[in-house]
Structure formats: C-alpha cells, structure tokens
C-alpha cells in the first residue's frame, strides 16, 4: 500500500518541510549578524546577549511561569475530580453538563477573552495576574478533563471490582488501583495545560492589566514594534522549551 504510493510520501515530506522550514529559518537567523537585512552576514550571539539583559522580558517570563503553574494546579485538581465524577457517577442530564464543559474547546477564543474581561470589569475585580490565572484555569480545565477521562474510560472497570473482591474498600480500590493508573495521564495533562497556559495570548490579552505582562504579551509588543533579530533569538528559545515540554507530556501519556 505504502510502496505503491510514492507520491503520498513526497506530499507528506513536502508537508513537513512546510511545517518546519519557517521555524528553522527563524532559528537560523537568530544567529545572523545583520540587524536589518534577511541576508546572512556572519554568526553572532549578540541577540541572545541582549535578551539576557532585558529586565522586562525576565519579569514577563516570571509572570508567565507563575500564571501557568497556578492555573495548571487549579485546572488539574478540578479537572481530575470532574473526570471521575462524570465517568463513575452517571446522572440524568449528564450530556448537557458534558457539552457545557467542552464549550471552551469550540467557541472562538476571542469570545472567551472578551466575555471574561467584561465579567471581571463588572464585578470590579481589577485586571491583574489573578484575573489572568482564573481565565487560564477555565480554559485548561476541559483539557485536563478530556485527557483524564479518556484514560479512565480505557481502564477495565473490572479492575476496581477485582480490588473490591480482594477485600479493598471503595476508597482503597480507588487509591491503590485507579489512581496509580491515572498518574501518567495526570502528568501528561499537567504538562499540556502548563504549555498551553504559557503560550496563551488571546485570553491573556483581554484579562491582563497594567503590570501583568506575560511572555506572549511581551513577544506581541515586540513584534508589533518591528522585526528585529532579538525576536528571532527569543523565538528560538521558546521553540526549544515548548518542544521539551510537549515531548515530556507525550512520553508520559503514552506510558
């Protein structure tokens, strides 16, 4: 099948080139000595040095990490509980609740951003890192829910029954059998949620206030104010970091 369709292979390789070339070009030119031109004028680490000296950048990185960490913890806690609740205790009207919980995955992100902003403004919660974190937890929750629930669904229900049959109380059956089997999925969703939070621009853009600039907001303002090799250097770092996080997340989910 595969051998008979070499054009499929060519198309697929071309597709990968389309996906990778821009990123690789970006990284390559972060070492380009020219400040303005896209022509290669020699190797330099100058742009990375400039990044290292950027105080505002450092602050935005800390903000992003803080938001990602807290929102991931909240989303994971609530998401895991909700996954267990949905999967193990079926109830009337479950379909409605399920669809509502998956809403953030289907409504345009900008709608979530502006509606949250309106909500915070009307309840007089000043836009800050706190409001950003609340918003991030909201869009990460369904992601955790979906991943953990998929894992729960794949577990043989007779595993918990077997534990009960062997003398375990309901809590023991959960903590000794189900929970350990959920851990990889939980770690996977933690890393995924963390990465998504770290990368989010839209919701952050609308819910951040003065002084709560996150990394993507900072990148946005840099790009808005013009193309410089410093952005290439920052991008290169972000690419490597995202790749590492996602690689770890996938490895954990697969286990």
């Amino acid at each position: 099948m595969v051998r008979r369709t070499p054009w499929l292979l060519s198309a697929s390789v071309a597709n990968l080139c389309f996906l990778y070339a821009p990123i690789l070009v970006l990284i390559l030119f972060s070492f380009n000595a020219s400040r303005l031109s896209a022509a290669w004028q020699g190797f330099t680490l100058e742009w990375y040095r400039l990044l290292a000296e950027d105080e505002a950048l450092r602050l935005s990185v800390w903000n992003s990490l803080l938001v990602a960490l807290v929102s991931t913890l909240v989303a994971t806690g609530l998401g895991v509980c909700a996954a267990i609740g949905l999967e193990r205790h079926p109830f009337r009207g479950q379909k409605v609740v399920e669809s509502a919980m998956l809403l953030p995955l289907v409504i345009p992100e900008i709608m979530m951003g502006v509606s949250l902003m309106l909500f915070f403004l009307l309840v007089k919660l000043p836009l800050s890192l706190i409001t950003v974190t609340i918003g991030h937890a909201a869009f990460n929750l369904p992601i955790v829910l979906v991943i953990v629930r998929a894992r729960l669904r794949k577990l043989d229900p007779s595993l918990e029954e077997a534990a009960r049959d062997l003398g375990a109380t309901p809590w023991q059956a959960f903590s000794r059998v189900t929970l350990p089997l959920l851990v990889p999925a939980m770690w996977g969703s933690v890393l995924l949620a963390f990465t998504i939070s770290l990368d989010d621009f839209i919701v952050t853009f609308f819910t951040a206030g003065p002084g709560s600039t996150t990394l993507p907001l900072y990148v946005y303002s840099m790009v808005k104010s013009g193309v410089t090799p410093v952005i290439n250097a920052l991008s290169a770092i972000l690419v490597v970091v995202s790749m590492t996080l996602i690689g770890a997340s996938l490895a954990l989910q697969r286990r």
Binding site: C81, A82, G85, L86, H89, V97, L103, A137
Partner: peptide, 12 residues
C-alpha cells in the same frame, strides 16, 4: 451528579 463535579461546574 457526583459532588466531585461541583468545583469544576462552579468554576466553569
């Protein structure tokens, strides 16, 4: 619905 669902429901 299970009580486990409540926090997530409130948050969302």
């Amino acid at each position: 619905p299970s009580r486990l669902l409540l926090p997530a429901l409130v948050w969302l």
